[in-house]
């Protein structure tokens, strides 16, 4: 049973290394049309120098709304579980 586990672990490690060798060269992501669009147009459209922020809060605002909802749910969950301390 132990050797099965070791074999499975070695298999997973080998697969991960194979995937790493099969990846694109580091620092050269695959080309996409949206990258150039954001980098060229974000300053004029969103009016901010930080393109990441203009993507997070303007182009992909729904994502940020979802993230805020997740955080809110987490805080509400903690407050519900630990609500005895409030009394």
């Amino acid at each position: 049973m132990k050797w099965v586990r070791v074999g499975a672990l070695l298999l997973v490690v080998g697969l991960l290394f194979g995937a790493a060798a099969w990846m694109r060269p580091f620092g050269r992501p695959s080309l996409a049309e949206m990258d150039a669009y954001f980098i060229q147009k974000a300053q004029a459209e969103a009016g901010a120098n930080n393109v990441v922020t203009s993507v997070v809060f303007d182009y992909r605002g729904f994502d940020t709304l979802g993230e805020a909802t997740v955080l809110f749910c987490a805080v509400v969950g903690v407050a519900l579980v630990l609500r005895r301390v409030l009394r």
């Binding site: 004029a44 969103a46 009016g47 901010a48 120098n49 930080n50 922020t53 203009s54 809060f57 303007d58």
Partner: peptide, 18 residues
């Protein structure tokens, strides 16, 4: 405020709702 194009330090009163 309008944003100067190209690389620049930026102005604090830009960004709209951001």
């Amino acid at each position: 405020a309008p944003v100067p194009p190209g690389p620049n330090p930026g102005l604090l009163e830009t960004g709209g709702t951001l």
